[in-house]
Structures are given as C-alpha cells and as structure tokens.
Nucleic acid binder design. Sequence first.
DNA 1: CGGGGTTATTCTCATCTTGAGTTATTCTTA
DNA 2: TAAGAATAACTCAAGATGAGAATAACCCCG
Lengths: 251, 251
Amino acid sequence: MVNEQEFLAGYDPRAYPAVAVTVDVVALTIRDGELQVLLIQRAAPPFAGFWALPGGFVRPEEDIAVAARREFAEETGLGGEPLRRVHFEQLASYGTPDRDPRMRIFSIAYLAFAPDLPEPSAGSDAGDAQWLAVTALPTRELAFDHRKIVEDGLERARSKLEYTPLATRFVGEEFTIADLREVYETVWGHPLHAGNFHRKVLSVPGLVEGTGATTEHGGPRGGPRARLYRAGDARLLHPALLRPAREETVR
Amino acid sequence: MVNEQEFLAGYDPRAYPAVAVTVDVVALTIRDGELQVLLIQRAAPPFAGFWALPGGFVRPEEDIAVAARREFAEETGLGGEPLRRVHFEQLASYGTPDRDPRMRIFSIAYLAFAPDLPEPSAGSDAGDAQWLAVTALPTRELAFDHRKIVEDGLERARSKLEYTPLATRFVGEEFTIADLREVYETVWGHPLHAGNFHRKVLSVPGLVEGTGATTEHGGPRGGPRARLYRAGDARLLHPALLRPAREETVR
DNA sequence: CGGGGTTATTCTCATCTTGAGTTATTCTTA
DNA sequence: TAAGAATAACTCAAGATGAGAATAACCCCG
C-alpha cells in the first residue's frame, strides 16, 4: 500500500509517469433566445478539427479558479468589469486514465455563466471559437470526454436555477420578470406559466428588488411597459423555484 | 499564452515542476447517535501528529473513483459486500498552490457514506485511524486544508439528504421510520417533528417500501413494535424533504 | 386613427404540502 | 399493575402551487 504520507515522504516525482492537471470551462450564455456553450476548434492532434471546451494547463503557481478565469478570458477576449460579472464555480474533476491518449491528464472543470456575450472570435487569440446552441450538441462530436463534461455542466446549471439566484447572472444589471422567465424557460427547455412565475419571483425573499423604473417601450409585439428589477441579496431561494416534476429522472 | 493544445503538443512534462494528484475521502457514518468522520493521524512531517483525511496518490493507471474506494478500504479494513454498500460520490477538488508545503498537489475529494462502521483500527494497516464526532471538529486542528474539505463534505451531505434517498445509506438493509428520522436529526443537527416526518417519508414516492415485518421488540424505553422498511427505488425525492429554513444561510 | 393581437400584472380557486398539536394503541420498565 | 415512552394516524390552519381568467397598457397593421 502507498498512503499519502508514505507517498509524499519518499516519492521522487520524476521517477513516476508524469501527470498533468488542466482546467476546462463550460461557459454558458443565452444568445438569440437559446442556451449556448463556448467551444473551440482543436488545431492539433489528437482530435484535430474536433470541437472542445476552452481550457488548458494550470500554471505552476496559479490557483485553479484563476486558471479557469484566465482560460475563459483568453478565449472570449473579455476583461475588466464584464469579466468580473461572470459567475464561475467548480463543476467536477475528470481523470479516467485513458481520457487523453498522450498522458495521464486530470481535468478540473468549471462552469461559467454570463449574459449575452459577443462572438468570441473578436477579441480572442483563437479565431476558431464559437458559441453553439446546446440543442445542437447531439449532432456535434466533441473531443475527449467533453460531451460528458458539458452534460454535467448543463444539469448543474438547470439544478442551480432552482435554489439559487443564478438566473440573474444571465441577464443584465436591470431586467424584467419576463427576461428572467426567458432564462428559466431557455435553460430548462420548456415554457412556464407567466402568471405563476411572476407571483413566485416576487414572493421569494431576496431574489429581486424593484428599481421603480419601467422599460422605455412595451415589447416588440405589443404589451405594456414592464417594471425593472435588479438582483436581490439572497444566496439561496426559499422556497425554491422547482422545475416541474420530471417522473423519468426520479427513478 | 499556453492553451491546452499547444501545451500538450510541445510539452515535456519533466521540464516543468512536478505536480501530483491525490484523493482524499470524507467518510461519514453514524455511531453512538452522532455523525462521525474518519480521520487518520499523520506519522511524518509536514503536519506530523496532526489528524488528516484518509487519502493518497492516484496510481498511474487507476481511475479516481477507484482510488477513493481503495483508500477508504485500506483505512477501514472493509471489503466485499459491506464495501459495495458504501455510497461514494465526488465532492470537489482542491489545488491552492501552497496547500502542501512540499510540492504542487491537487486533491480530488470524495464523500463516502456508510451505516455504523466498526472501529477502523481493527482491520486496517493504520492503527492511527479513528472516527471523530463532527461536533468535536472545532477543537481539533486538521492537516492541510482538510478542515475546509470536511466542511464542504458536511454541507453536501446535509443538502443531499433533502432531495435524495441518501439517508437510507446510513441505516441497515431494514430500518424503521424512527431510524431514518434519527439519521436526519443527527446529520442536520436538530430534532424533527416525529409525526410529520413519518407522514412525509411515507408520502414521498419511492423513498421507502414496507417489508411487512416489524421489530422484534418495542423500543428500549417502551413503545410498540415499529414497522420495518427498506430503501425504495427513487433516485430523487419529489417533493423534497427540506431542512427547516435557516434564515442566516439564505442571505 | 382605430382595432386586433400581445404582453405585464393581478386575481381566483381548487389542490397539495407543511407545521403544530392531539389521540389511540402497544410496549417496556419499575 | 401503573407510569412512561414511542409508533402511527388524525385534525386543522397556514402556505405554496397549478391552471385559468381578467384587466390594462402598448405595438403594429390597415
């Protein structure tokens, strides 16, 4: 047996097969009314030409969370205040021995949420980056185990909408209840009852707070001006905003 | 910039500072009516004499989840069917550059749940292992960032009791509603209304199924024989069994 | 400029779920 | 044998949810 102490006490790392640690980022945004994920096209083998999650090596003195933000920033060209507004959280780690054909690579995946980001090619050094609607994922082959990572990220996102104010991270500073409802409908993938949603959002303490203002105009197809809100100070929603029960996933 | 492809294409791992990947296991059980966590006492520096989570090096060809089970089995002496009944899940990864003074070590933490396990010293190769009541954690200094890892694990456990049948993993094959209630009370750290809990457990589809049998005797201090149940086939609880709202944690 | 279609917001109402307390019954212990 | 304790079932009020409808503001088209 090799336990941690023995390993660390007598271990010469260079005598063992090398391992590497990377971060991969599942960056989600809502564009054109669709939930989209950021992908980059691989230039070199393996999986050359395939699409993959943005990510890379964690630098020797770099914290993991910092590495995730850095990789995201490099691919999107985002910086400053807009970057600070992006929500990051650790998703999970992936380390199946053969997940990369070249060597043992552990990947720590992060999830990033941001409102309506611009096309990534603009400011980034990788013109081969794009947002892909998650509904188009089934028809696209991804490199490595990145499909699994994206699926885990999507499930996490759907689930966190239920009991955290995460949805407010997908909209701008000020938003209407309908904006928020669109986020829920887009991420969960099905329509919600507008009246009940409205009542619920206003009744959960700390989810939103009114600004007193309304939109300048009604909606593009009519309707009155909507009141504007900004995110409240809640960190957890109580009671939660639950997805309609999905019998299939329960058993 | 070094992105993943460039890094992996032209990278000679031995030219970089070495990194290592370990697993650490937050193993929880209920013994003597208390939630307890498995700790081992470190023999070698750094942190010699301190208590730490069981864990160790992920072997070159070993899957992370397998490594977690192996480390747990080595410290508890558990194997075969009892080991298979233990629930494992990935918790999170920790990789702050200075979390280990010797080298860059990334730790992937796992959470393990099991019913009333025996004293670990018995079958293990490390006689310096013990179960510690989590209520005693504040008075004990832990090695590395293991206190943070344990706290994250406890929060995950408390939260998973709400919406998964995890509690059934802390009791034996057959159990009474009162056994289950004791699990919730112990993990959440406060008493529940017996009648409401009973109603709720029986009303959530797939949480428990009756065996038709009852206990041999009443409780040690009186009371009728209780009906016996076994775990149902639900993977998610709908509606969830929520903790009483904790105002403090909401904001 | 007026009407039809659209949307934000508020209500109603039946149904579920929850929290708190009570009761009948069965056991154990003294 | 009586007292105390625990299981299981019931009551009742308060809260939350799902479905539908009403009201009013606003856009676009003709």
